[in-house]
Design a protein around this nucleic acid. Structure first.
Length: 862
RNA sequence: GCCCGGGUGGCGGAAUUGGUAGACGCGCCGGACUCAAAAUCCGGUGGUAGCGAUAUCGUGUCGGUUCGAGUCCGACCCCGGGCACCA
């Protein structure tokens, strides 16, 4: 029998789809709409297996929903601004635009080879001025709507290269190219007011019932709502204007355990005192050496500097606590100042032990004696009863919080506050390859937005990357413009947008990608929200939160009428592969090694032994990558698609193995042989005899029909639930039943086979669309599998007459019996007790109880 | 450091609401076909003991709840993702 030739066949059907414009979005409003979107790729140069996995899942959903009768939108585009293009420009002397558009061409071709049902007519790249012009217009509207403002913020500064570094470019506190110690530096930047929506972004998570619970939890914690108290401490010995210190606490109940106050290095009080205190100045400088990432700040050794200032306890004028500048207090959170209660906060405790401050337990665990309870090196953070706290003694933590807050408010030295961990979104980047921020700085008029008629502010092409820093700053003419308001010479903003801004509204642009405005209102009203969004879990917080905010911001300027961009979200796991190392220690590509036995590998050319490392995320540095193009050339796109859907549950990491691809390839061949082999028994199509089940049907044909309809029901459910690996297993099982079926040549047999084959081909279609088209064609159809409706399961064929029931003694399986479904419980019990194996196990012991779970289990308790 | 997730045979994994642990695939073993190989087809395959019927252990570790726990509860160990300028 001939083999299925994937390469030729895939090309053929791809041409047919293109000619038919099979995936162009229809504007058929009579059908329910379904918008499926995968996170668009950064055009790094080549598609990697992570993309293949992501876009295959999206493609399954798109084709499945289309078959179910939905009007499907499934677009693709490019998240095309970003650092790698500038790095390439620096390293290879190619212009970022040239590099990016070449990469896009390559990657588009790779995606098309995979046969994805994408509407390429809607493609765009975020670096196209036709895209970012609208982003600039929206920014100006946001500015007018009060959604953006300027503020000083810290950046990583490389003092040798004289440039701002991304956190990723800071390695062990040093610049990645210069090796110089990085310092934090303040810069005036644009901020988007995401905190205006903190409460809303938090509460709306509750309605996102088609989002993974873990993503909602991560966002909830990221937003970090806390109810606390702003509390004022009088200061002694403080400089003029600093007679009060405002702190924020979520534990006002522990106020009598206070043993110090601490302020951030950036706090105005610290800055003021540093003017006359060189040691303090040096300490603040030292705090600045830490990077800006939260991880770097948190992991840094907790250090403090004792100020000459004291704070007066708000409930006792005679009680004074020392005030420190501490590197673990963040200016961005709360008020940039805290009071420390070492007994009930681990960080405060570590700090107190280091600087020899008192540790007064004021919360005592239930059942402990307040007089003797002590805290060692672990802070007590559980609930308990308040003690050593004067008027609070005996209260619970909660009651204590309320009491302190009430007294502070009544006394005018405190105020209840809701605080968020979420900070405003810094949107400025000191880089070339991003969307220019459309404002002009004028000495006379201040900040002037570029008039909308002058948009887009395009990036200049003639830039150089020979010196570090922002090429827009170095450009001889670009930034020199006249003020649109007063006409005098002014300076164009040379910062560009954070690329997260580009990706915060692209899903809306896809609804009407050529609109003269960001998007047509009618189009977004119809298509949004995205019904199913799919992407990596690494985007669980930032990208998804920014997009949720941006949608609200766009609503505020009346561009659309919804709050939530993504009704359904699925986050997929990474693609991993074993790592291989030669004796020299260098990493080897999977194609450079050869398996010579169980766990034994050697170098394919030299025969040198190779050590195999554990499976890790595919990465260029570890060389554990497999190029999708090689796989498509060897096995075809369908094999690659089928394999990435098999085995691993989509939300978990996927392990790429050579044997796995082989297995997938063998299955495609097996399917080909099965269907082509059975086709002659299946009878011709479009004959009245084949349109409904024959009135009399033999046992074998009936059994096959049951298997068919069970498979339809189970596969449909599995795809709906994103259990693609289960769908694959179910199709395997069903193929096994079809394989075992012996056609008799009678009408009922022929009907069952044809019904089964057609259902099988359509069920396989979302996953292996080229093979499905070929098989569909082979079955005699002139229409496309792609245009065929999803099969429907007949409910009557889904239930069995008999069930197998487990019989347990003391919860341990001892036997099984097959009985009629829904058998009477008493009869079942008697039957189970009468089983020989059960009698042997019981050894005459008296039965105390029998638990019967209908159609499932009988458990005998002795 | 903080937040989130995961851990089941040799491997990837399956297992409605707590109800037959190991579906399906890979690998391996045996057989058929073949001059031979590849491909394909058939059978077997969690560990231990046993010729076998069978017994017993077994879902990261320890403990608990229950007639019954991979699933629920508590403590711990290991691996992965995110931490605001990577995308």
């Amino acid at each position: 029998m001939s083999r299925y030739n994937a390469r030729a066949t895939e090309k053929k059907w791809q041409s047919v789809w293109t000619e038919n414009r099979s995936f162009a979005t229809t504007e058929d409003r009579s059908k329910p709409k379904y918008y499926v979107l995968e996170m668009f790729p950064y055009p790094s140069g080549r598609i990697h297996m992570g993309h293949v996995r992501n876009y295959t899942m999206g493609d399954v959903v798109a084709r499945f929903r289309r078959a179910q009768g939905y009007n499907v939108l499934h677009p693709m585009g490019w998240d095309a601004f970003g650092m790698p293009a500038e790095n390439a420009a620096f390293e290879n002397k190619t212009h970022p635009a040239t590099w990016t558009y070449q990469n896009i061409d390559n990657m588009r071709r790779q995606l098309q080879e995979l046969g994805f049902a994408l509407d390429w007519e809607r493609e765009f790249a975020t670096c196209d001025p036709t895209y970012y012009a609208h982003e600039q217009a929206m920014f100006i509207d946001f500015l007018e709507a009060g959604l953006v403002y300027r503020k000083e913020a810290s950046v990583n500064w490389d003092p040798v290269d004289m440039t701002v570094l991304a956190n990723e470019q800071v390695i062990d506190g040093r610049g990645w190219r210069s090796g110089a110690l990085v310092e934090r530096r303040k810069l005036s930047q644009w901020f988007l007011k995401i905190t205006d929506y903190a409460e809303d972004l938090l509460t709306a998570l509750g309605d996102l019932d088609r989002w993974p619970q873990k993503v909602r939890l991560m966002q909830e914690n990221w937003i970090g709502r806390s109810e606390g108290l702003r509390l004022f401490f009088d200061l002694q010995n403080a400089p003029a204007g600093y007679d009060k210190l405002e702190i924020y606490t979520t534990r006002p109940d522990t106020i009598f355990g206070a043993s110090f106050c601490a302020i951030a290095a950036d706090h105005p009080l610290a800055q003021s005192l540093a003017a006359n205190d060189p040691t303090l100045q040096a300490f603040i400088e030292e705090c600045r050496v830490t990077g800006t990432s939260e991880e770097a700040l948190e992991k840094a050794e907790k250090k403090g500097y004792r100020l000459t200032v004291d704070a007066v306890h708000p409930f006792d004028p005679s009680w004074k606590v020392p005030v420190f500048v501490a590197n673990f207090v963040l200016m961005d959170y709360g008020t940039g100042a805290i009071f420390g209660c070492p007994a009930h906060d681990q960080r405060d405790l570590d700090f107190a032990r280091k600087y020899d401050l008192s540790v007064i337990p004021v919360v005592v665990p239930d059942g402990e004696d307040a007089a003797t309870f002590q805290v060692g090196n672990t802070a007590f953070v559980e609930p308990g009863k308040l003690a050593n706290s004067r008027f609070l003694d005996g209260l619970t933590v909660e009651a204590g919080k309320a009491d302190v807050a009430a007294r502070a408010e009544a006394g005018g030295f405190g105020e209840r506050t809701v605080n968020f961990r979420l900070r405003d979104w810094g949107g400025s980047r000191q880089r070339y390859w991003g969307c220019p921020i459309p404002v002009i700085h004028c000495e006379a008029c201040g900040i002037v937005p570029v008039p909308k008629a002058d948009l887009p502010v395009k990036l200049p092409d003639d830039v150089t990357f020979d010196k570090p820093g922002n090429p827009l700053d170095h450009h001889p003419t670009w930034k020199h413009v006249n003020c649109p308001t007063c006409g005098k010479p002014a300076r164009r903003e040379t910062d560009t947008f954070d690329t997260f801004i580009d990706s915060s509204w692209y899903f809306a642009r896809f609804c009407s990608p050529t609109a003269a405005t960001p998007f047509d209102r009618e189009a977004v009203d119809y298509w949004l929200p995205v019904d199913q969004y799919i992407g990596g879990v690494e985007h669980a917080i930032l990208h998804l939160l920014y997009s949720r905010f941006f949608t609200r911001a766009m609503r505020k300027i009346d561009l659309l009428g919804i709050d939530e961009p993504f009704a359904g979200l699925f986050t997929q796991g990474m693609v991993c592969h074993e790592t291989y190392r030669a004796e020299s220690g260098e990493y080897l590509l999977p194609e450079q090694v050869e398996r010579i036995g169980e766990g034994q590998w050697h170098h394919a050319d030299t025969g040198q032994p190779v050590t195999v490392g554990r499976s890790e995320k595919m990465s260029k540095s570890k060389k554990n990558v497999v190029d999708p193009t090689n796989i498509i050339d060897t096995y075809g796109a369908d094999t690659a698609r089928w394999f990435v859907l098999s085995d691993s549950p989509p939300e978990r990491d996927f392990e790429w193995t050579a044997q796995g691809v082989e297995g997938a390839w063998r299955f495609s061949q097996r399917l080909w042989r099965l269907v082509t082999g059975l086709t002659e028994h299946a009878g011709a199509i479009n004959q009245p005899a084949n349109q409904s089940a024959p009135e009399t049907i033999g046992d074998d044909a009936l059994a096959l029909r049951r298997a068919t309809h069970k498979a339809i029901a189970a596969v449909t459910r599995a795809i709906e639930d994103f259990h693609f690996n289960r769908a694959v297993a179910l199709i395997h099982e069903y193929v096994n039943s079809l394989n075992d079926f012996k056609p008799t040549g009678s009408a009922d047999s022929g009907f069952a086979v044809r019904e089964g084959l057609e259902a099988l081909v359509i069920m396989v279609n979302p996953m292996m669309p080229h093979l499905a088209e070929e098989l569909w064609h082979g079955l005699g159809h002139v229409t496309l599998a792609n245009d065929s409706p999803w099969p429907k399961a007949e409910v009557a064929l889904l239930v069995d007459d008999s069930v197998t029931i487990a019989v347990q003694v003391q919860g341990k399986l001892r036997d099984t019996i097959t009985v009629a479904k829904d058998m009477d419980q008493k009869d079942l019990e008697a039957l189970a007790l009468g089983l020989e194996k059960i009698q042997r196990t019981l050894e005459g012991r008296a039965v105390r109880k029998v638990i019967v779970v209908p159609n499932r289990i009988v458990n005998i308790v002795v």
